[in-house]
């Protein structure tokens, strides 16, 4: 077993993740759970698990990120998920570029410069229609499991236009389409398109620097990747664990600052 050199935790709105890295910055251990409303308990549980695996954590640098980062009392530092995602993705893909991170509660576009430095960012935290929640909500309506969303959307041979960009109104639009006998697949494809077009507008507002990279839970959705490629004309690069990039970046920052 490799020795633990730093820990990073990402207390997000839908999931909570912890990552351990070794001396070389390699991701050697992680845990991921749905976010517990009692975030502090969850953090303690995670730390206990790390302790069981690696022994006492006293000397191990520990950095927190995510919306709940300030609740992590044991962390030596707390850093925004913008900087952490940038560091994590940069370390893994080894290139500057534009990172799109679509999370449960917000979505962001981060322009990463040399060394993983954040050059600029845009954030949508005002409207659920630009976030993972948009898909989650509507998937529930259509009784399609979250993991199958992307695949189902891509299997469509045509596409419905979902005109509304509001999550709640999109739901009623979907209900009416279903009531008119429209199949699930074209509706889902239209839904993905609607989310992607919002993201693309955000990318444009900061200016796209190639390559385009994707992180966050939604990165696992293949329809999002495909449509993002279609709309931007850029190939989308994915890290191995898109959901862990925030926690990974946090651990790397801890490692560097030791």
């Amino acid at each position: 077993m490799k020795a633990l050199a730093a820990l990073g935790i990402d207390v997000g709105s839908s999931t909570c993740k912890i990552v351990g890295v070794d001396e070389s910055g390699e991701l050697i251990w992680h845990l991921l759970e749905q976010a517990d409303p009692r975030a502090e308990d969850q953090v303690q549980r995670f730390l206990k698990a790390a302790e069981q695996k690696f022994g006492p954590l006293k000397a191990v640098p520990f950095v927190a990120t995510g919306y709940g980062r300030k609740l992590v009392k044991d962390a030596a530092k707390n850093i925004t998920e913008i900087s952490c995602h940038a560091k994590g993705v940069y370390h893994e893909l080894q290139k500057p570029g534009t990172l799109v991170d679509i999370g449960g509660q917000d979505s962001k576009v981060i322009v990463i410069g040399a060394g993983g430095r954040v050059v600029d960012f845009a954030m949508n935290d005002k409207c659920a229609a630009g976030t993972g929640r948009f898909l989650e909500n509507t998937a529930g309506r259509l009784h399609v499991p979250l993991e199958a969303l992307g695949k189902t959307a891509l299997s469509a041979d045509r596409e419905e236009t979902i005109s509304s960009t509001c999550t709640v109104f999109a739901e009623s639009e979907i209900i009416s389409l279903v009531a008119h006998g429209v199949a699930v697949e074209p509706i889902l494809k239209g839904l993905h398109r609607s989310l992607v077009s919002r993201i693309v507008a955000m990318i444009r507002s900061v200016g796209l620097v190639s390559p385009l990279m994707l992180s966050g839970g939604v990165a696992r959705n293949e329809a999002m990747r495909k449509l993002l490629e279609e709309e931007t004309g850029e190939k989308v690069h994915l890290p191995q664990y898109p959901q862990l990039m925030g926690a990974y970046g946090a651990a790397l920052i801890g490692l560097k600052n030791g």
Binding site: T80, G115, R117, V118, K126
Partner: peptide, 20 residues
């Protein structure tokens, strides 16, 4: 919360740019 988060990220950029 959103304002604080943005300001925090912005300050990290400023901090970083002076380190660079």
């Amino acid at each position: 919360q959103q304002a604080e988060n943005r300001i925090a990220a912005f300050m990290e950029i400023l901090e970083d740019s002076s380190n660079a």
